[in-house]
Design a protein around this nucleic acid. Structure first.
Length: 711
DNA sequence: TTCTGCACCGTTTTT
DNA sequence: CGGTGCAGAA
């Protein structure tokens, strides 16, 4: 049980020890009204730092205390971690086991439900979840196979296409409509794009794959096409609570409606001023229109801020008042007065990095502020580069919550591809990824081998190189070309004849190089070893086998930093120990967020726990620190130059608002005067962010740091 | 057919 | 600055 300490979160009294919760004493009147509210839909508008988590936690506790079975409560949150935190706190209040609750992200809950009923919508229950990169790869494959006749130079790349598909799914719009509204310049390709989308959808079904959006789309489809299933869950969940409601999208809204349609005990909690995920289809109007869709809904507001000093709150209010679309709120600061936020003007990004590190060291040494109570926030990951260099130079421990996720690194995905193969035999991407790791097998051979493999029923049918004697004990001769034995029965290439001139023997069995032969044997050997019913539900052991039998050698031969990578895989294995099912393990890994991944990684590593946090503002949502630095506050970066419409600018402003309101005590807003022009050595002068310019000068204190000046 | 090296492009935010 | 695509050698 994590040591949750409420006094850290707010200055209010901690829980009673008696086991019965004293709600009146532990909640303010606004919070209490929410916790004690009875049945029916309700909307809770919760300002930053207003004890939203606390309120939801107590409401759940209250429901359980008054007789609701935890199994009948569904808690939908933005991250899995948020759900776990809330339910752990409920367990702290009451003698209940948290595993009886249903809680997690929409994707997680969708996955849990689909694992049980996937067959009803044409999938197998052991489907594999594609992460973003997998989807991209799959689309790339399609782009290659359909060979657009005249490859137009501006034809969108796979990540653009994936974006369109995802946006369409999440907003409930047709592909064509999405293109028209979002990227009208691609309208001329819409027929091809729709064709690709159809192939993509068909491939996923055939190979038993679901991407992130499918977890929601198919969830909805399941409920629409199978009324009995829908009724089962709608009756089961007597209470549904949705956190961060301002960031739900149209599709999620529809799912919620179906889930809560029977009992109508829907509690949604959010803050319209913190809606920052419209790029993912989040529909800010979900929260604005809630009272219209549920006319009987009661509206509550949490307006007391327990987090920030009045000075910080004043600056935040000063910022957000420039937005027009919002619920009126009257935030009240309850913390004692503190320091004014500082606007720090610096020469350039390097000066900014130097200032931030120096200041952090001072605060750490002089004021004994732990490093993990300080955070540096930015709009985009690349803005943290100079800072990372500086921190590394000074050996200041830090943790990055942006950029590539732990589980998305190549070496982890390599090893996981073997697990995906034995979990889902039809997983083409996984097969190809594994195949291409081996010497002598490139794209062409991998493609050929896959064509052979996919005709087979299952793994036990894999031809283990019938003719050739095992080469294992002749490894000294590995460079000599072995006598080409017949590999897996070659399927005659379908349809199109190959244009190659020397293709006379194309109809005979294909000949692979000796290296490819040996590689194939090695792969089959490994797969047969891990495809063992006794190990099937022990992913940790499987990972170790893959590592010991082959992958360690591969890493040592191909990467200078192989030690780090082996360490990562050992951590992966440790993480896997808690799972007793391969599918559960694989889903969990794909659905984990950045921060959660980092946490598990750190948890298995006996390293420093007191580390500075570097994070995008998006990832910082819901969190708080004593000291916050917001860096790179210049026009074009923040707000980002691609966001120019009024509503996009309002969202950027909300993002700035989120950054500011993470702060408890000390806030630094950093503005570097100069930045680097792309791919050039000279610097350009940058305008201060409009979000700085529009602040009242009285809401901050300005500091100018020039070169060589010690602060 | 595979592999390597070089040039260039574009560069957000996430489940 | 990193991934991707292309040209050329083994």
């Amino acid at each position: 049980m994590p040591d949750v300490n409420f006094s850290k979160i707010s200055p209010r009294p901690t829980t009673s020890l008696s086991g019965r919760v004293n709600y009146e004493q532990e909640l303010n009147p606004q919070q209490l009204a929410v916790v004690m509210a009875g049945q029916g839909p309700m909307l809770v508008i919760a300002g930053p730092g207003s004890g939203k988590t606390r309120t939801v936690t107590y409401r759940v506790a209250r429901l359980v205390e008054t007789g609701t079975n935890p199994d009948s409560i569904l808690l939908l949150t933005f991250t899995n971690k948020a759900a776990r935190t809330m339910l752990d706190r409920v367990a702290n209040l009451l003698p209940v086991r948290t595993l009886h609750f249903w809680g997690g992200t929409f994707h997680h809950i969708g996955n849990v439900i689909l694992r049980k009923h996937a067959k009803l919508i044409g999938y197998q229950n052991n489907y594999t979840i594609l992460d973003r990169e997998d989807s991209k790869d799959l689309i790339n494959d399609i782009l290659k196979t359909i060979k657009l006749d005249t490859p137009p130079k501006n034809f969108p790349k796979s990540n653009i296409l994936a974006g369109i598909f995802g946006y369409a799914a999440n907003t409930g719009r047709e592909i064509k409509e999405t293109i028209g509204k979002d990227t009208p310049q691609l309208m001329k390709f819409s027929a091809d794009i729709i064709r690709i989308f159809d192939i993509y959808t068909a491939k996923k079904l055939k190979q038993n794959l679901m991407d992130f959006d499918d977890l929601l789309l198919n969830w909805k489809k399941l409920f629409e096409e199978h009324q009995t299933v829908r009724d089962f869950y709608a009756r089961k969940f007597i209470y549904t609570l949705v956190d961060e409601y301002q960031d739900t999208n149209h599709l999620q809204g529809e799912i919620i409606e179906r889930l809560a349609g029977v009992h109508r005990n829907l509690t949604v909690v959010g803050d319209d001023a913190q809606s920052i995920y419209s790029f993912r289809g989040a529909d800010f109007t979900n929260i604005m229109e809630f009272p219209n869709r549920y006319p009987e809904a009661k509206i509550y507001k949490l307006e007391a801020n327990y987090r920030s000093t009045p000075e910080i709150l004043r600056l935040a209010n000063c910022c957000i008042k420039h937005n027009t679309k919002q619920f009126p709120k009257n935030l009240q600061a309850l913390c004692p007065e503190g320091e004014y936020p500082k606007l720090v003007i610096l020469d350039n990004n390097f000066a900014q990095a130097k200032f931030v590190t120096k200041e952090i060291l001072e605060l750490h040494r002089r004021e004994k502020i732990p490093l993990n109570q300080m955070a540096v926030l930015y709009r985009a990951h690349y803005q943290s580069m100079e800072l990372q260099m500086e921190l590394a130079n000074l050996k200041l421990p830090f943790e990055i919550r942006s950029g590539l996720r732990f589980f998305e690194q190549a070496h982890l995905k390599d090893v996981l591809s073997y697990l995906k193969i034995i979990s889902n035999f039809n997983h083409e991407l996984a097969w190809q990824r594994a195949l291409k790791l081996y010497p002598g097998i490139g794209p062409a051979s991998a493609e050929h081998l896959w064509k052979t493999i996919k005709e087979l029923k299952n793994l036990s049918a894999l031809p283990a190189c019938p003719d050739g004697p095992p080469e294992a004990d002749r490894d000294a001769n590995r460079h000599l070309s072995a006598a080409p034995a017949s590999l897996p029965p070659e399927r005659v290439a379908s349809g199109k004849p190959r244009p190659s001139g020397r293709d006379g023997r194309a109809s005979g069995p294909r000949r692979f190089s000796g290296a490819a032969m040996k590689s194939w044997q090695e792969l089959v050997k490994l797969i047969n070893k891990i495809d063992n019913p006794n190990l099937k539900d022990n992913p940790a052991v499987l990972i170790n086998i893959i590592l010991d039998e082959w992958y360690r050698d591969y890493l040592e031969g191909n990467y200078a930093d192989y030690r780090d990578r082996i360490d990562d895989l050992k951590q992966l294995s440790v993480f896997a120990e808690q799972f007793n099912s391969l599918e559960k393990f694989l889903s969990r890994i794909t659905l984990l967020t950045n921060a959660e991944g980092e946490e598990h990684r750190a948890g298995t590593k006996p390293s420093v726990s007191d580390r500075l946090i570097l994070s995008t503002i998006h990832q910082a949502k819901g969190l708080e620190w004593s000291v916050v630095f917001v860096i790179g506050l210049v026009e074009d970066r923040f707000p980002d130059s691609r966001h120019t419409t009024e509503s996009e600018l309002e969202e950027e402003r909300r993002l700035f608002y989120v950054a500011v309101t993470r702060t408890k005590q000390k806030l630094y807003l950093c503005y570097p005067l100069a930045g680097e022009k792309r791919s050039a050595l000279y610097e350009i002068f940058q305008q201060p962010s409009r979000f700085l310019q529009e602040l009242d000068a009285s809401s901050y204190r300005e500091v100018r740091i020039t070169q060589n000046e010690s602060y």
